[in-house]
Computed example of a mutant assay.
Amino acid sequence: MVGPSRPTLSGTVDIVVDDSIRHTVTLAPGAGQGTATWTVSLAPGVHRMTAAYSGNEFYQPFGFSGGTTIQNGRLEVTPPERIVAGEPFTVRVKVVPINGATGTPSGTVRLSHGFWPDQATATLDGTGSAIVTLTASFPSGNTPSALVMYVEYLGDGTFLPNTWTAVPAIPYSLPDGSPAGGETPEQAAT
């Protein structure tokens, strides 16, 4: 027995970027799907996009609208290896020009981690860098064993806002050095 087959998807897709760049692609037909490739170079910034599928004898026309951001700066972040409740820790942030951007980024970065309102802001220096120091709060309730850290660059007149998230989360402990989430494996074994 042969499984169910899907009708062939064929036709064209009209693509418009920023109301000024227009292109039509013809789909390479396939069972239940069609593919096409169009390469376009976009300047850094936020771009609006729409696409309209022509439809065929099996599929009705439909459209899509959305957007994309082409960044012109990348965040380089040096987080701490561990965060200890009640102790200060330092994070180094640098905004580096990319995608042909030139100049030195300026403006503000905002840093936060798992416990609100633990956040700080810092102004980038003449090299596009900042050093941010926070003191980790003592948690209330269940204590995590790791914290997610977020860094947000707010942008300036030239460089676009951007974000960075620590993956994996940064280990978190109480001041006695034990993991905040409970016993260490060595403690549990004794």
Rank of each mutant, 00 (worst) to 15 (best):
V109Q: 03
A52M: 05
G73W: 00
G45A: 10
P168A: 13
S129N: 01
S137G: 09
D125S: 10
E81R: 15
T133D: 10
P105T: 09
S54W: 08
T143A: 07
V96I: 14
G66L: 02
F64N: 14
G55H: 09
A51V: 08
S137E: 04
T37F: 10
Q119M: 08
I131V: 15
G63N: 12
I98C: 03
P105W: 01
T37I: 13
Y150R: 09
I83L: 04
T39R: 14
V91S: 06
F58H: 15
N56A: 11
P161G: 10
T102W: 01
L160G: 04
L75V: 11
P61Y: 05
V40A: 09
P88W: 03
T135P: 11
V148C: 02
T50M: 09
E57W: 02
F138K: 02
A31V: 13
A166E: 07
I170M: 07
G34M: 05
G34I: 05
W38I: 03
Y53V: 03
G45F: 12
T143W: 08
G128F: 00
N142A: 10
S65M: 02
T163S: 15
S54R: 09
S106I: 01
G157A: 15
S137R: 06
P144M: 01
L75S: 08
Y150A: 12
F58Y: 12
I98N: 05
N72W: 01
F89E: 03
H113C: 12
T165R: 08
V46M: 06
G103A: 06
I170E: 02
P44T: 13
A166I: 04
G100I: 13
P161Q: 11
T104L: 04
N99S: 14
I70G: 09
V167G: 12
G32A: 12
G66R: 04
S137T: 02
D125F: 09
F138H: 07
F89T: 03
G66K: 05
V93P: 00
G103E: 07
A101G: 06
G107T: 02
T121F: 07
G128E: 00
A51R: 10
I170Q: 00
P139T: 07
G103K: 04
T69W: 00
A51Q: 07
V93S: 00
P97L: 12
V148R: 12
S41R: 15
Q60L: 14
L154Q: 15
W164E: 11
A136W: 00
V77H: 03
I170T: 08
A146N: 15
G63M: 03
A52Q: 08
R82N: 10
F62P: 03
P61F: 04
A52L: 05
L134D: 06
T121K: 11
T35E: 10
G34Q: 08
